[in-house]
Amino acid sequence: MENCLSHPKTLTLPSPPSSSSKPQLTHNFSPKPTFRFNNPLLIKPAKGGLCCRRRPLSVIASAGASHCEFSSLNSPLEPRSLAGKFLSNVLQNHRQLFHIAVTEELKLLADDREAAVTRMVLSTDSDEACLHRRIAQLKEHQCEIAVEDVMYMLIFYKFSEIKVPLVPRLSRCVYNGRLEIWPSKDWALESIHSLEVLEMVREHIYAVIGLRANSSVTDGWATTKIGQSLVGQIYVASILYGYFLKSVSLRHHLEKSLSFTDHDLQLGHRTQFHLQDMSTYGFTNLLFGCFSNKQSIVQGPTSQEGKFEGLRCYVMGFHPESLQGCAKLRSKEAVKLVESHSCALFGEGESGSFESDDFILTSFSSLKRLILEAVAFGSFLWETEDYINNVYKLKEN
């Protein structure tokens, strides 16, 4: 099913200069402050400044050759806000202006929220205090939905940069109880990780589904029967694992670059403990499956020469509280987005639940594709949170 967005009138935006090169992806989503986003949907008020006036966008679904068809903008979760629909339109038709549009939308949302809170505070002792408090609550809710959409579109953009389409709603991909996802795009999904992170991702895949990195094509296309609810749980756990790997790998790189050798620095006292202790901090063998064959955790380096162990040993030496902090989603918006995306991918209709007892027949290759996508989603989510929080203050989780 291919989703395309239509507009009542043609959207006209200024074309980029002919000498400009194709925009490159940056991991920190750095905006371009010297260029103002200018289009018919943004009008200048009398006293200057920009305000956004968007016409409603309609979503049109058209049947393709396959219900599980990948398209340029085909994702399981559709934008719910005007900001999200507007950005999806920009991404399709004016990709070179996407980051500028995102920055403008975030600024507008931040201003709208701040203005509503200011009015509420100023009217505290007036007869309209209750009204303005309710308005501020509604505005806060609207901004939450809009920011989740902006976050989702940024993640979608990151996937499009590596030319990997998100897997559409799985109910469209299951035929006669069998699920197959093609093309796999494994190489592209693995290319976003460093060698150390990729090694841990592959170990995670092996721990979850038993498919090794050097498995043959025959092994990959072998089929297995698995519950739909379990597939959903694996997907969510893999998102959290990708988020965790992004966070901890950046910390590892920072510590190495600063040549820290003291074990009692602010990253937390590093000590030896057993893997089963992780469960008391909300970590399961499913999430940290790559360590499931370890009986004990390797202690941090004792050498004073400034030499650091690899990422895996670095992670295993973390204090439990520091480990938990790296794996925890930092914002409430991110928590809701993971829930919404996962339910849209695995859920049926509008129920928003993928707790199904039905079993499906699928190949190990398709399961690997889902896990690699989930890990990449988590990694991109960490970067997106970091970018958005610089413009629009997210709620701490």
Rank of each mutant, 00 (worst) to 15 (best):
K185D: 05
R270H: 14
L250E: 13
C290V: 01
F260C: 08
L230T: 14
D186K: 12
L265S: 12
S191K: 05
G232D: 03
D186V: 09
H204E: 08
Y241W: 07
E199G: 06
T284R: 03
G282A: 07
Q266Y: 12
E203L: 11
S279A: 15
G268M: 07
H269K: 11
G242H: 01
F260W: 13
S292T: 01
V217A: 11
M200C: 03
G300D: 10
S194T: 11
S296L: 14
L250C: 15
G227T: 05
A213H: 09
S229D: 15
K294R: 04
H263K: 08
K185A: 05
W187C: 11
D277F: 10
E255Y: 09
F244D: 02
T284F: 04
H269Q: 15
N293S: 07
D277S: 09
A207P: 06
I192D: 04
Q233L: 11
W221P: 04
V231P: 00
G282Y: 06
I239T: 00
G227S: 12
Q266P: 07
L265I: 09
G220Q: 12
G268F: 04
Y206F: 08
F260A: 10
T218A: 13
T261C: 12
T218I: 14
L275V: 07
V201C: 08
L211T: 02
Q276G: 10
S194C: 07
L258M: 15
S257V: 09
N285I: 05
K185R: 10
V231A: 03
H263W: 12
A222E: 15
S191M: 07
S292Q: 06
M200G: 00
S238F: 00
I297E: 10
